[in-house]
């Protein structure tokens, strides 16, 4: 493998020039004994995204989910097609904004909780009283 770092100019004739201003990897093309075993690298999409049509990534702003391992600036993988359950971390619509909370479903009612005692619970009689935008399936936590 050789890497050419631009800028570099290749004559393409016809008075137009091809200008490369990005690093470009050039394969040297030797036969590799590992070639027959190479089946592609690990693809995170394949493992983290169950359904490409319903999966979105959102960025967390604030520390109210800190104790659930979700910090300010982390990204969440959110599946909008999942049925929210008791204990799900959800993105709910509250006052026109996307908000991360833990969903608690009990016989007494439904509660959106922060993972931080400083933030009050939001209680409603039934799940239908909430707009659940999606269910978080992974947190991309910055370590």
């Amino acid at each position: 493998m050789g890497v050419i770092i631009g800028p570099r100019v290749i004559e393409a004739g016809l008075s137009l020039r091809l200008v490369l201003i990005s690093p470009v990897a050039v394969a040297a093309g030797f036969p590799s004994p590992a070639q027959d075993y190479f089946d592609g690298r690990i693809d995170l999409n394949e493992h983290l995204i169950k359904d490409i049509t319903s999966t979105y990534i959102v960025r967390v702003s604030g520390d109210s989910m800190e104790q659930a391992g979700i910090s300010d600036g982390d990204e969440l993988i959110v599946n909008r097609a999942l049925e929210p359950r008791d204990g799900s971390v959800v993105v709910a619509v509250l006052d026109g904004e996307l908000t991360v909370k833990r969903l608690k479903i009990t016989a007494a009612g439904v509660v959106l909780q922060a993972a931080n005692p400083l933030y009050p619970d939001i209680s409603v009689p039934a799940l239908a009283d909430l707009t659940i935008w999606g269910v978080a399936t992974r947190c991309l936590h910055h370590v």
């Binding site: 702003s61 979700i70 990204e75 908000t99």
Partner: peptide, 15 residues
């Protein structure tokens, strides 16, 4: 560009 640009993701509030 919520779904195509990493620095323009939708923001979910946690505060």
């Amino acid at each position: 560009r919520y779904t195509t640009h990493w620095d323009e993701l939708p923001v979910a509030r946690a505060n």
